[in-house]
Design a protein around this nucleic acid. Structure first.
Lengths: 238, 238
DNA sequence: AACGTAGTCAACAGTGCTGTTCATTCCGGA
DNA sequence: TCCGGAATGAACAGCACTGTTGACTACGTT
């Protein structure tokens, strides 16, 4: 049962990768506090001592893993960071659309990776420091300024919404999408709904003059009740 | 420095609550694997032995905490579960709107609670078993069937999107919203953008016949390339 | 005033992890 | 062929936590 030692081929880089890969797994499964060097080494099929040769401490291992994940994500969605010049980036709807497609695809193919990244970013004090997130938001911002976009978009809110959704959809869906084909279908469903939503929303707006009013008075609204108890949903103007 | 014992007033219920409250904190901060009975007791200002009197094992403590959070969420958004009869629930747009408002408010007032709940649910094999999530989705489903809704909505995708967003927005925003007033403003920004999005989307749809086409062929689309490498965003049809 | 019990305290064995050290093996490139 | 370094293995002290026990203390109720 002890499926023991085949001594690892001597190849520092691959070994390092193997350790990071295992760390990624554990991180995805048990979260930051659940990562132990013992467990990571075990999964990587590597001696604990070896792990300590590559990463001085547990903290550094976790950090390196997070950075590694972040980099993978950025590259998958935007390509090589070194060839990127933000000032000359296009901002058409098709670009935004393509970014969202890339994102959805990456998230669907790497559910755990996405989850790790999201949780990790959100547990920082300054989530907006993450390169991917900054880049995503700023490209959206450029688009929102064009005449092609609807007026009055709150880019920050929308970015949070779309990024969160892209990463959480695959996690949600993983129970009923095991094959590549199924994953592809689920990815399509997601991107399609995003397109539909961005094109038409969910309400037939002509029927809701009162909601339109609510949009009128912008965030400035302070007078309204501070509200605390759940306002029970009652019969509508249907 | 040792801010020692003031022996706790004898009140089992409050003590239990205090422990759950502390467990919630730790859970929010360090995740499931980060919860230790020692730390929880410490934060609750309670002897470790006392914690073990209320919860037999660490596992049970965590479980109880998760259940407690889930219940709080449901009540905050939908009210008392016992008075709820799904068959006679209304499904107007105003109801959906109100549910989203309640959700946004709760999430904004309890960022950690929301985060815990979301992560906890997503780490289950069958996330859709969660009462809140089921209820949310089914009420949305009823709405989508009415003539007030846009046609072709993918309710499941949209539910994931909106629930995720509602919980993650506060986490995202917490760094720049410390006072109740700021939180309220942030909450308003969020709900406003959701209303705007559901009313108008983000694109001026009349300008994008090709995207419209993409909506035409439904999820059935299989012929398209399996796609793996990031399609670099290039100049659009602007 | 007395009893039952919530809460405190200290000690214990057991477990699993961290970080370190040292000896050993063996691979690959010079 | 030989040497440096990659990888293994084992051992160690130290720490933090789990669960359990037994003795204690003070509070609230009856």
């Amino acid at each position: 049962m002890t499926e023991k030692r085949t001594r690892r081929k001597r190849d520092p880089e691959r070994t390092r990768e193997a350790i990071l890969e295992a760390a990624r797994e554990v991180l995805a499964q048990d979260g930051k506090e659940g990562v132990s060097v013992v467990e990571v080494a075990r999964r990587a099929g590597v001696n604990r001592g070896t792990a300590y040769q590559h990463f001085q401490t547990r903290e550094q291992l976790i950090e390196a893993t997070a950075a590694w994940v972040s980099d993978k994500l950025f590259r998958a969605v935007f390509g090589d960071p070194s060839e990127l010049d933000e000032s000359e980036m296009p901002a058409g709807a098709a670009d935004v659309d393509r970014v969202n497609d890339n994102l959805a695809e990456f998230a669907m193919e790497n559910p755990e990776l996405g989850r790790i990244w999201l949780f990790e970013v959100l547990s920082n004090k300054q989530p907006s420091n993450d390169p991917f997130w900054r880049f995503y938001e700023s490209s959206f911002k450029r688009f929102a300024k064009t005449a092609l976009a609807q007026p009055g978009i709150d880019v920050e809110v929308l970015s949070v919404l779309l990024i969160s959704g892209a990463f959480i959809w695959p996690v949600w869906v993983r129970s009923h999408a095991r094959t590549a084909k199924e994953r592809h279908q689920m990815m399509k469903r997601y991107t399609r709904e995003i397109v539909r939503l961005t094109m038409h929303g969910t309400l037939r707006s002509e029927r809701y003059p009162d909601l339109e009013n609510r949009l009128g008075k912008r965030a400035a609204s302070e007078e309204s009740k501070p509200a605390s108890k759940p306002k029970r949903a009652r019969k509508a103007q249907g």
